[in-house]
Design a protein around this nucleic acid. Sequence first.
DNA 1: TATTGTTATACTCTATAACTATA
DNA 2: TATAGTTATAGAGTATAACAATA
Lengths: 142, 142
Amino acid sequence: MDAKQKLTPGALYGLLGYRLRLAQQAVFRDFAVSVPGLSPGRVGLLIFIDANPGVTQSRLAEAVERDRSTMVGVLDQLEARSLIKRRRGEDRRTNGLWLTRAGCTLLARALRGIARHEKRIAARLSAAERRQLLELLGRISG
Amino acid sequence: MDAKQKLTPGALYGLLGYRLRLAQQAVFRDFAVSVPGLSPGRVGLLIFIDANPGVTQSRLAEAVERDRSTMVGVLDQLEARSLIKRRRGEDRRTNGLWLTRAGCTLLARALRGIARHEKRIAARLSAAERRQLLELLGRISG
DNA sequence: TATTGTTATACTCTATAACTATA
DNA sequence: TATAGTTATAGAGTATAACAATA
């Protein structure tokens, strides 16, 4: 053993915030493997559009708590990949959003990947422990 | 109630990864209020330098799992704020890192802020629940 | 006037590749 | 040759401010 400490000191290791960050990073890495080609945020957008066909860009931005200007580029990318389409709304200031056929297909595949992912990260928890973890996380989130 | 779903659908809400992300975001927001002027990552660096005075940039980068090129700019900022100092090592390729007086002072203040922060985010958990949450998070992190 | 989508711009955090000075 | 620090560059992801079209 070295005189120097190897990783972050015990000071951090006892903190909920730090441990939450470590867990989230581990989960994120597994997600990237299980759901190639889509980040968690992107999947969230596809799910939301799928559940709310024709939703406007501003409503979507509001739903995921981002500025509407932020959505423009993100949606440009999804549209460039032919996963979504924009269509001008009855209120002609708005764009309605829909999944394309390819978007539906990719979302379905992503959801299967997420199911595998979820199973893998919960592998070391019993069903009761998984429930309790969700409960405690909910308490933290306020 | 609208026909459209308000936020992300139940599909996501049952997922550990999603709930972890929500909890982490809530904690992050509270951290920013409790520990003004330093992000969680920056505090981690100061703690590590404090615990390992004279550590080189590369060892620090390795400890926090970042590329050494990433550290350069970050350390430039901390140095520009006079929180750390670099000193050329015996091996003259290296820079040793130390906290300055101001860095020590700010770190001490940050640690007090983190203590308040930790107390606040754990406020809705019993001691046993807090322990269990740490345990379950450890299991998730692998 | 107010709202929607857009653009221009900028900031944070991160990485890779190539350079320099040392070893 | 190999390593430490640096630079140039790039790419996510995010925001604010201002603008045109539309309401």
